[in-house]
Design a binder for these strands. Structure first.
Lengths: 220, 220
DNA sequence: ACAAAAGTGTTAGTGGTACACCCATGC
DNA sequence: GCATGGGTGTACCACTAACACTTTTGT
């Protein structure tokens, strides 16, 4: 509804980002150190206040650009956390985003940031543990009916690496033959002529995604 | 993140509700008349500003209580619309909710409100058409893997009525025998000893939902 | 007796799941 | 030649989808 000049009600508008990447096949989430008085030094998600004329998603990008180039990041609005008590410093409404980035695009890791296993997230400032949980749930759900996993992968990969990605995010093993049959029949990957080399075993064939960096709806 | 006293950035916080009900088997959405200058008299979703210490969902309930008792309504946060340009009167961030209510619980319809077919929504004020679209998409999606349809039904109903509800929301016909087999095998409904009476045809058996007003995850 | 909606089973096809061995390479 | 991970096919089972007639009531 429209603001009525006589009765304006304000809130502080913020955004927080649960940014994930797959590193050596493990799902990681980016944590930084809180700077506010109440939570000083505690791990938190990157985030902060949205400018008066700034799109919320742009602000989300701004808060992670120290850690990775936002251009390479897939963003999706997750949920809005607006409980009047969630920030002890006053009412802050935070629009949380899910972000996914291929590990190759991660910038140098500063001393204030760290990537921790999504399975072992420590206690975070504010309600950020709830944000991480919601993000994981969303990611796991979408894995099954979209090609969202592309946002976590480099351009070239082997089917075993892809399977490990699925397994690590879903938290369960998948059957190798059935997985390959399924992925190939969906037609979302195409094989290249390249092979992995230099490993003491049969070289893996390299694949690429077909509809490059587009996120469509499929079934797994 | 925490507000920093030296650099506060405010937004007007609002909420809008896409409230649906099934009336004679048809999915309807509640529209009211806009009161703001720019959109005076245009149809809009019910909504308005959130109080400084009010939970957003409570505000959403407050804005529909003229039309139905919020206790009987299923609420679910939908999406946050925060484009700096979305309200011509200034920056308003709206947290949109999906609401579902059984038609029996709808209060008297005032002159300023109307229930219109979800398939033929007129042009609405602000970006409210986008909110209705998002709500329909969410509702249709959840129909397939939750028992969310319960939120639109009275306690007692026939299987044909239930099927008509699914059909009208999904926008396609379902096979009667397969539908009944599926619903019964899911175990989400139980039959009662009652029957519909007074119609010039074979009376329908009356059913009830099993796990009353709880929303679990299933498959359709 | 007729109109109108309720109720009921079978079959064919598709997709999911379980499962074990050979292959290509580096050392 | 051995250790390591890569790569491949088949058989069974469960679920889906298509489909038409009989039943019960009111008039």
């Amino acid at each position: 509804m429209s603001p009525q000049k006589s009765n304006l009600k304000f809130a502080v508008l913020a955004t927080d980002v649960a940014l994930f990447s797959l590193q050596e096949g493990k799902l990681k989430v980016l944590l930084i150190k809180a700077k506010s008085k109440k939570f000083l030094g505690m791990p938190t998600l990157p985030g902060g206040l949205v400018g008066p004329k700034e799109k919320i998603e742009k602000a989300a990008e701004r808060f992670i650009k120290r850690y990775t180039d936002p251009k390479g990041v897939y963003f999706e609005q997750l949920y809005t956390f607006g409980d009047p008590q969630r920030d002890p410093g006053g009412r802050v409404v935070s629009v949380a985003y899910l972000g996914l980035v291929p590990s190759a695009k991660i910038a140098d890791i500063s001393a204030e940031s760290s990537w921790v296993s999504a399975r072992m997230v420590p206690s975070l400032a504010y309600d950020h543990n709830a944000i991480v949980e919601a993000a994981l749930e969303r990611l796991r759900g979408k894995l099954s009916y979209t090609n969202i996993i592309q946002a976590l992968f480099p351009e070239e990969f082997s089917l075993t690496e892809l399977q490990e990605g699925y397994e690590n995010i879903l938290g369960r093993k998948l059957d190798k033959r059935n997985f390959r049959k399924r992925i190939l029949s969906l037609g979302i990957v195409k094989k290249t002529e390249k092979q992995r080399k230099g490993e003491p075993n049969r070289p893996a064939r390299i694949f690429r995604f077909v509809d490059n960096k587009i996120k469509v709806i499929e079934v797994l």
